[in-house]
């Protein structure tokens, strides 16, 4: 089990004459993922979701806050002692084209981590090749076909499966899938999502799914939780189906409204929200972070920052950070209904 508490991260950008400009990427994010659970982080580019994923995978460190893996807080450990813990969290990169070394065959790519794993667990050498074939079969590709090949000989979908198989070599507890399907043909995305779902059920691997496409979050499986990130803050959090079907935060509603409508199959939801401006990090930090783009913002939103929680005046299943929560019908409806 992995939990994060009050994770913050600020990037310093070089900004001309006046020296550095600070860009907060994460402003106190809490999350928890159970064994075999699924957590989705949703937001547009620049919302901090990728940074969060990298921190969870141990590829970056946070400025403050705590990551706890299996009851062990990471902040007290030296980088060397942290490594075995973060090895239990494997990253699946967005781009299956750059995630595999073009000069190495799939066999070589899988063999290196498996050899390491064999040493760690005291397994004999023959286990390595057997395990490579087993893992490829698990992710749904023919080992005989794939093993001797180079990445350029495989399709995008196959490469992403190989990447997942490589992540599984370390017997991870959780996978961080950062936009894991966005560079794959739409026609094959559901296959990868179904695979992640199956890994949850079969192996009890937790999945942290990071995406800008909120629709894909539905396919990660039951009992998943959705966190909507906006400029480094969680603005809405709850069970995935609830957040998608009954969103209360205007930002969540904008994200959902932006999902294309398949005319002929669907018709647009009646309450679609279009955010007024593009995301600009230079927007001030006073008040609600979304206020500048929110069509519903009031004076209070410009002044105070709402915190994530339940609103006693407007009870919902999910937590949200909005002064004016209201359920809106923004997702497309079936065309006939």
């Amino acid at each position: 089990m992995i939990t994060g508490t009050a994770i913050t991260k600020t990037f310093r950008q070089r900004g001309g004459v006046l020296g550095h400009r600070e860009v907060p990427a994460l402003r106190g994010v809490d999350f928890a993922i159970e064994r075999g659970g699924a957590v989705c982080f949703i937001g547009e580019s620049g919302c901090g979701k990728t940074t969060l994923g990298r921190i969870i995978a141990g590829l970056e460190t946070c400025d403050s806050g705590e990551i706890v893996i299996d009851g062990t807080p990471m902040s007290g450990l030296s980088p060397r002692r942290r490594r075995p813990y973060f090895r239990r969290v494997q990253m699946i990169h967005q781009d299956p084209y750059s995630a595999l070394n073009p000069t190495r065959t799939i066999h070589q790519t899988l063999r290196a981590p498996l050899a390491l794993r064999a040493r760690q667990t005291g397994r004999p050498k023959p286990w390595i090749d057997a395990r490579a074939e087993e893992l490829l079969a698990l992710v749904g590709i023919d080992p005989g076909y794939v093993l001797p090949r180079y990445p350029h000989q495989l399709s995008g979908g196959m490469r992403q499966r190989v990447v997942i198989a490589r992540a599984l070599t370390m017997d991870p507890e959780a996978l961080v899938a950062d936009e894991a399907v966005s560079m794959i043909d739409v026609s094959l995305r559901l296959g990868i999502l179904a695979l992640l779902r199956r890994l949850r059920e079969q192996l009890g691997v937790g999945v942290l799914f990071i995406t800008h496409d909120i629709a894909t979050a539905r396919y990660i499986g039951d009992e998943s939780e959705l966190y909507v990130l906006y400029r480094g803050q969680v603005v809405e959090h709850g069970p995935t189906e609830t957040v998608i079907n009954e969103p209360v935060h205007p930002y969540t509603q904008s994200l959902l409204s932006a999902t294309p409508v398949l005319h002929g199959l669907e018709r647009p939801g009646p309450d679609r929200i279009v955010p007024t401006e593009a995301l600009d990090e230079r927007h001030g930090d006073a008040g609600c972070l979304f206020a500048r783009r929110c069509p519903l913002a009031t004076e209070r939103c410009e002044r105070d920052r709402p915190v994530l929680g339940h609103d006693p005046a407007y009870p919902t299943t999910q937590r949200h950070a909005c002064f004016h929560p209201r359920r809106r019908q923004v997702i497309p409806l079936a065309a006939g209904a």
Binding site: S155, G157, M158, D185, V186, S187, L188, R189, L190, G191, I192, L193, A194, D213, I214, A215, T216, R218, Y219, I244, L256, T259, L262, L265, E266, I331, P332, L333, A334
Partner: peptide
Amino acid sequence: RGLIRAIPRLSGDLGLARALPGRP
């Protein structure tokens, strides 16, 4: 038909959605 069924969607039955079999 297969292409449409393979689109991750916000509405519609999850059980009916399926990736296109085979590869391009």
